[in-house]
Simulated assay, not measured.
Amino acid sequence: MAISDLRRQYTLGELTEEQLTAHPIALFNRWLQDAIDAGIPDPTAMTVATVASDGQPSQRIVLLKDVSEDGFVFFTNLGSRKAAELAANPKVSCHFPWFFMERQVRVCGTAEKLSLKENASYFLSRPKDSQIAAYASRQSQPLSAKTALLSQFSQLKQKFADKALPVPNFWGGYRIRPHQIEFWQGGKDRLHDRFEYNLAEGGRWQTQRLMP
Rank of each mutant, 00 (worst) to 15 (best):
F99A: 06
S151T: 13
L78I: 06
M46I: 05
G203E: 04
T47W: 02
M1K: 15
G79E: 15
T110F: 08
S93Y: 05
S58A: 12
E85G: 01
L15M: 10
R175V: 02
F170I: 03
Q33F: 10
E17K: 14
K65T: 07
L143T: 00
Q33H: 11
H95T: 05
G203H: 05
G172P: 08
E102K: 06
L210E: 09
V48G: 05
P57K: 01
R209V: 06
R194V: 04
A145K: 13
M46R: 05
L20T: 08
F96T: 02
M1Q: 13
S80R: 09
W31E: 10
Q208C: 07
E85Q: 15
S4C: 06
L150D: 14
L32Y: 15
S80T: 10
F28C: 02
M211K: 10
S125D: 07
L165S: 00
S121D: 12
S80G: 09
R30W: 09
H23Y: 05
G71W: 07
Y197T: 01
A88Q: 15
I181V: 14
R194I: 03
F99P: 00
H95F: 15
Q131Y: 04
D5T: 14
Q104C: 11
A22K: 12
A120H: 06
P166W: 09
F123D: 13
V92W: 00
A22H: 09
T110D: 11
P43R: 04
R103S: 04
V92K: 02
Q104G: 10
R190S: 09
N119K: 02
R204W: 07
W31F: 15
A88I: 04
L191S: 02
T110N: 08
D162V: 03
L165G: 02
V73D: 15
Q131L: 01
Q208M: 11
F183T: 01
L6H: 06
I181F: 06
Q131G: 03
F195A: 00
I3E: 14
F72V: 07
A83S: 13
T16S: 12
D37M: 07
L27E: 03
R138I: 03
Q9Y: 09
P212G: 04
R8E: 13
E118D: 14
A49M: 13
F72E: 08
A148W: 11
F99M: 07
S154Y: 11
F96M: 06
K157A: 13
D162H: 10
R138P: 01
T47D: 00
L32I: 01
A134K: 01
F28D: 02
A84W: 10
D5A: 13
A111W: 05
T207D: 04
G203Q: 01
R194Y: 08
M211A: 14
L150N: 11
E201Q: 08
R81P: 06
W184F: 12
Q19K: 11
S80L: 10
A2C: 08
Y122W: 09
I36R: 15
E18W: 03
P142I: 01
Y10I: 01
G172N: 04
C94L: 15
E182G: 01
L191N: 04
R194H: 06
Q33L: 13
A83M: 05
T110K: 07
